[in-house]
Nucleic acid binder design. Structure first.
Lengths: 200, 200
DNA sequence: GACAATAACGAACGTTCGTGCTTTTATCTT
DNA sequence: AAGATAAAAGCACGAACGTTCGTTATTGTC
């Protein structure tokens, strides 16, 4: 790995952390350069535009997310345990990843929902992948007999992500110390409903 | 109502709509002045700082929210019907209010969660009020016998808001046409769980 | 209609923004 | 070690930012 690639990763890593707090739009080349003790132009040369930088930040964050959340969770037994692992790992993935401002994807989702362009497209693709991962795990849960056969995996994926968004709101904006337990209660409710459907 | 007050309201109204799309931080005095066909300095004079403008935008949005969502819903019969009214009115309050960029509070919540200051404090207070409204309606639902006595109203408020956040994500970022039905399904699940607790 | 008060304006302030160039410095290859 | 290549720096640009100032129009009151 050459020098260029190394600094490029250092830039993206720091940009990712910064963006988790101030958003992708809140990123500024000048601020990044100051923080990393290099010149604006030197930093800028690694990307050809700010938009590319934002896009690459999302890509980098996605790699990290997969490493921290998805891959380890997939090591858990199929079905409910795996779903539980996904959920629990998501709950503190920002801590593990060292993102001081909370989940970058949640921040970016709200920021970009009205700004068409390649960065938004990238985020949409990543978020759909994430919902797909949840949905697939839920589907195997049906196959394993953990959940009822008439469970809609996509609906469960949607609902579970909603629980996560609720957690993010309670934890980060409201600084509610009960945020984690609230989220876990929401998760268990989802599972309960899912099992009830088994006998329907 | 004097001239000053009238233009001030016009500014806040437009700023609110603009902020729903670009966020409170995305507001710019220059942009607002151009849109409203007045000078930057003339507009600026109505507020003493951009921060005050942002704060007043939140206040204005809150008045509108109460008019559009809360007050009409409180006209519905106590308990479950009232909770349902709250939910349904929330679902299209941004349309009714003419907010092209989705719920301003959701946008602001993510924007401000890492930026201490009076604007953040204002938003936190408003969001707690909102959760309180939901919680109180849920509590009367217990009194009416619609929900089980061991239902935690605050938890239900949290969960219901999570459903709303999930809707916002699906509708605005993913442009999912099933967002509304997904949200309604989530809402019904909450109610079902709530009723199940009745016999527990 | 005169006069005070208020509202709006136009110009400029110092910063910061993203983005080009050109030049210097550091790294990699032979 | 030399030469080629890649990376970083330096400097400048035009535009937009929030804010302040002094001045001009407009409003509301007696």
């Amino acid at each position: 790995m050459g020098k260029g690639e190394r600094t490029r990763e250092a830039i993206l890593d720091h940009a990712m952390r910064l963006a988790s707090a101030v958003g992708l739009a809140g990123l500024s080349i000048g601020r990044l350069a100051t923080d990393l003790e290099m010149s604006k132009s030197g930093l800028f040369a690694h990307f050809q535009s700010k938009e590319t930088l934002q896009d690459q930040v999302l890509v980098r964050a996605s790699q990290l997310f997969i490493e921290i959340v998805v891959r380890p969770a997939l090591a858990a037994p199929r079905g409910e345990p795996r779903l539980r692992a996904l959920f629990e790992r998501w709950l503190d993935w920002t801590r593990t990843a060292g993102l001081p401002g909370g989940c970058l994807f949640v921040t970016a989702a709200v920021e970009l929902d009205d700004r068409p362009g390649p960065v938004r497209d990238r985020l949409v693709a990543l978020q759909k992948e994430w919902l797909d991962v949840i949905g697939r795990v839920a589907r195997t849960g049906i196959a394993e007999g953990h959940f009822g056969g008439n469970l809609d995996p996509e609906q469960l994926a949607h609902d579970l992500y909603a629980v996560m968004l609720g957690y993010h709101h309670a934890a980060r904006l409201l600084r509610d110390p009960r945020a984690v337990s609230r989220a876990r209660a929401g998760f268990e409710s989802l599972l309960t409903a899912t099992r009830a459907r088994k006998s329907a």
